[in-house]
């Protein structure tokens, strides 16, 4: 018994010791296969992006070349010139960015406040009201978008960014739920001491609770920003005029007009996809943590 344990232990320590790891031929084979499979799959997953990027620099004639080549024979920015001439991508970028930033900032603040109230203040109806928030997470956006469209018509908000910003900034059930879990996890003793010293709830919230929520707020912020920046459904329903279009809408419209001009379409798609892909490359760890945290509820 003791010998078998030592054998297992020594095998484990061998796998942990990088110098000795190389001594086992079976290990080398195993690791080569593992990395071969992973690298092949990673390349396969990245290939559509590479195809998009490289094709955007091809002249149109090369698109129909048989067999198609990954790299352009002749590099050209023709596609980008057509893309910029065909649609105002700078404006689309600005629209997408300021809508996403505004929604993220305001909804983080309002969700935080609501989360604090649910987690820390005892009031009648707290539990049922919280259950209502939870239940709304099941409601598909397509159900409320029809009445919302009519309401926005009454408010005169159709074809304005307010129709996208205000509802998303003022209502975020998932955010309230996620942050409430975190506030509940903060020990109460400090707040009670502060309360004894005469600190108001507002002071306690801003100076003691908010700083401790940095991790979930970053995660939720990333999650909200991604969702808003890439949102297609809302802008498609609410926006009509080109000047108000966000990037996804611009790409879709561009596709309708330049559908057969693949290099221009790929240039437009690259313009729309690049900002977030670059951001993801820089802040991969934070973004991945943010995505992971969004699922680690309850």
């Amino acid at each position: 018994m003791s010998t078998s344990t030592t054998i297992r232990n020594s095998r484990r320590s061998a796998s942990e010791d990088p110098k000795r790891r190389g001594l086992h031929p079976r290990r080398i084979a195993g690791r080569t296969i593992l990395h071969g499979v992973l690298a092949a799959c990673a390349i396969l997953m990245a290939l559509p992006f590479l195809w998009m990027l490289l094709s955007s620099f091809k002249p149109l004639t090369e698109i129909f070349a048989q067999p198609p080549a990954l790299f352009p024979l002749q590099w050209t920015t023709e596609g980008y010139e057509k893309a910029f001439a065909g649609a105002d991508f700078i404006r689309g970028f600005w629209n997408s960015t300021y809508i996403a930033v505004t929604v993220t900032a305001v909804s983080l603040l309002t969700s935080c406040m609501a989360a604090y109230a649910f987690a820390r203040i005892e009031f009648r109806g707290s539990k049922p009201l919280f259950m209502v928030f939870l239940a709304t997470m099941m409601v598909p956006a397509q159900l409320t978008i029809i009445p919302l469209y009519i309401i926005m018509g009454w408010l005169g908000w159709v074809d304005t960014h307010a129709a996208l910003i205000v509802p998303a900034a003022l209502f975020n059930a998932f955010g309230v739920f996620l942050l409430r879990q975190y506030v509940k996890g903060i020990p109460k003793e400090l707040e009670e001491a502060a309360e004894l010293d005469g600190a108001s709830r507002f002071r306690i919230f801003t100076t003691m609770i908010l700083p401790l929520l940095r991790t979930p707020l970053t995660a939720l912020g990333i999650f909200t920003f991604l969702g808003q920046w890439n949102n297609f459904f809302g802008p498609l329903i609410f926006l009509n005029s080109d000047a108000n279009f966000t990037l996804p809408l611009l790409v879709n419209q561009f596709k309708g007009q330049y559908g057969a001009d693949w290099t221009a379409l790929m240039a437009a798609t690259t313009l729309a996809a690049a900002p977030l892909l670059i951001m993801f490359g820089i802040a991969q760890r934070q973004i991945v943590d943010g995505i992971a945290l969004s699922g680690s509820k309850s």
């Binding site: 195809w51 998009m52 798609t269 977030l276 892909l277």
Partner: peptide, 24 residues
């Protein structure tokens, strides 16, 4: 992190851009 970059990249891309690539 290299593998993850490739596998997670489509997630941060808008579905419209994704569909435009796959349309081709």
């Amino acid at each position: 992190s290299v593998y993850r970059l490739c596998l997670v990249a489509p997630l941060v891309t808008s579905s419209v851009a994704v569909a435009a690539i796959w349309l081709w």
